[in-house]
Design a protein around this nucleic acid. Sequence first.
DNA 1: GTCTATAGGTTGATAGAC
DNA 2: GTCTATCAACCTATAGAC
Lengths: 206, 206
Amino acid sequence: MTGEVTKRRGRPPSGGREAILAATLELLRQRGIGRLTTREVAVVAGVSEASIYYHFNDRSGLLQAVFEEGIRPLQELGAEGGLSGPFRRELLLTLGEAIERFLDQALPILTAAQSDAELRDRLAAYMDEQDLGPHRGVLALGSYLADEQAAGRVRADVDPYAVGLMLVGTCFTRSSQRQMPTHRSELPALADIVDALVTLLRPTGE
Amino acid sequence: MTGEVTKRRGRPPSGGREAILAATLELLRQRGIGRLTTREVAVVAGVSEASIYYHFNDRSGLLQAVFEEGIRPLQELGAEGGLSGPFRRELLLTLGEAIERFLDQALPILTAAQSDAELRDRLAAYMDEQDLGPHRGVLALGSYLADEQAAGRVRADVDPYAVGLMLVGTCFTRSSQRQMPTHRSELPALADIVDALVTLLRPTGE
DNA sequence: GTCTATAGGTTGATAGAC
DNA sequence: GTCTATCAACCTATAGAC
């Protein structure tokens, strides 16, 4: 996939497109989508407004491109998400941290899309098409726990997918809380949730 | 609470202010804050634009009023939230349903506020001031569980606040999912999470 | 308290040269 | 592919009458 530098194939990357995307994402996080204008995007990206309309057709096209790029990491996270190995504390903690890391950068985008019905519907259609959403994490963790239940390493009298939603929901809430510029009251740490889950899921000697 | 019609106390309700607030909330949910204009608010409310600026100083004032009104139910939910009675399935289920009911109507507002840095900060300041946020639910459920642990009705070897976050996070995620116009993949039902929690928290005969 | 009319300022988008 | 220049539309907010 990565070729030589001597003979460049295809069009030389002028970098304009990427600069626009990066500038849009930065302004989106900083000021919010309500104050995001093509004019400022052009200034920050160091290009003209017309260049934006050349690469993306209109403002909606620009935003949709940014959204899809910002959500892309979830596909990789879902692909790598084949949990394996015996049930351990570190496994859950690593998974939870990965989920929170993704959400910390994707949640501002998901909330921004809610500010415009058209954008919201288009992003929802894209997520439907790519089968993205919180259910992915729930299913991944749930099926893993189901296997561990069959192996006798996790107590078998609970719905593994319910437990999956508990962890995903924890990450979701913690990440959402971080988005608000208020932290006067802290939520329990991710490690506390993982510890509780490990304790609760340990097979009982019934 | 509902008085007679014969003798009206206080200023006669012209209804203009309330109509504006209701129209704003409706348009906010329908089109998103990005397409919310004072012009359309005036049309839907059946008043003139100037009337909006009379009651609220500017667009930001209108939005902030809508935000605070939409979040008000949380204060009541927090006040009534004094969980009591022995640990039962129905107790958790009722609490979870109340949380989801609140979030279903408050989450669109919270996400809308994220679209503008100024609005976001002002709402955050208000929530700080009123001490509102997901931690309220976590603390309420956590302290209740701690009491039940002391009473021997809940297994005592887990952090009760961690468990609190699990339930709140579940409701948060489920409600967020409902906001997206896509349901191709369902999350576990609230009852499933409650069942799992009840099973896991039952005291073991250790 | 509510209206009409309008000012003032931004914004998304296009045209056409290079 | 990128630029400058420009337009037409729109939106917030105010002024002043009733």
